[in-house]
């Protein structure tokens, strides 16, 4: 295998990203994925297993993994960490009661070795709901500013309407693409 083959493979690899979408149950992960894929978003049922969607965006091939967020399933999340380029953390901005829990789960993930090189995008979802907390409040509640280990960004959005989904994903892709050396 000569340099030219290596470069070809590398280019292919760089064009193909793995994104892991996590968050508490009912956060809107599956809705977000469907919206992004242009599917009907009404009548989404809780995810009991996991979904994988392959999307094309800006010349990237995105393998997006969406795993159910119910508490019984969370211990299985670690099955999906491997070679993750980007972590999308979805928050139900209207779910004030569980923000505390939400922050705890997120910090647990960030300690994971196998997610060490991944970029973090937080979606403050359901901004369309009347009582939704703004992104800045979520940022504070989740103590994002204390994160030192990962590149991160928070984006208020609505998976239901599709509002602000693209800017979030674009930031994520830009960040990942500007890495020189992919993690092992």
């Amino acid at each position: 295998m000569g340099l030219l083959t290596i470069l070809k493979k590398m280019r292919e690899k760089e064009r193909e990203l793995r994104l892991l979408v996590l968050g508490l149950d009912n956060a809107g992960k599956t809705t977000l994925l469907k919206r992004f894929n242009g599917e009907d978003v009404t009548g989404t049922a809780p995810t009991l297993g996991f979904n994988i969607k392959t999307l094309e965006h800006r010349g990237f091939k995105l393998n997006v993994w969406d795993v159910g967020g119910q508490s019984s399933l969370r211990s299985y999340w670690r099955n999906y960490f491997e070679s993750t380029d980007g972590l999308v953390w979805v928050v139900d901005s209207g779910d004030r009661e569980r923000l505390q829990l939400c922050g705890k789960e997120l910090r647990g993930l960030l300690r994971e070795e196998r997610l060490a090189g991944a970029t973090l995008l937080v979606f403050a979802n359901k901004q369309d709901l009347p009582g939704a907390l703004p992104a800045s409040a979520i940022r504070e509640a989740l103590e994002l500013d204390s994160i030192r280990s990962h590149h991160w960004c928070i984006q208020g959005c609505s998976a239901f309407t599709g509002h602000n989904l693209l800017p979030g994903i674009d930031w994520l892709l830009d960040d990942i693409a500007s890495r020189v050396c992919p993690p092992d």
Binding site: A135, D145, I147, R148, H150, H151, W152, I154, P167
Partner: peptide, 12 residues
């Protein structure tokens, strides 16, 4: 500069 709130990781 992105208008989004980004914080570069401060890799200690």
């Amino acid at each position: 500069q992105s208008q989004m709130t980004t914080v570069a990781a401060n890799e200690a």
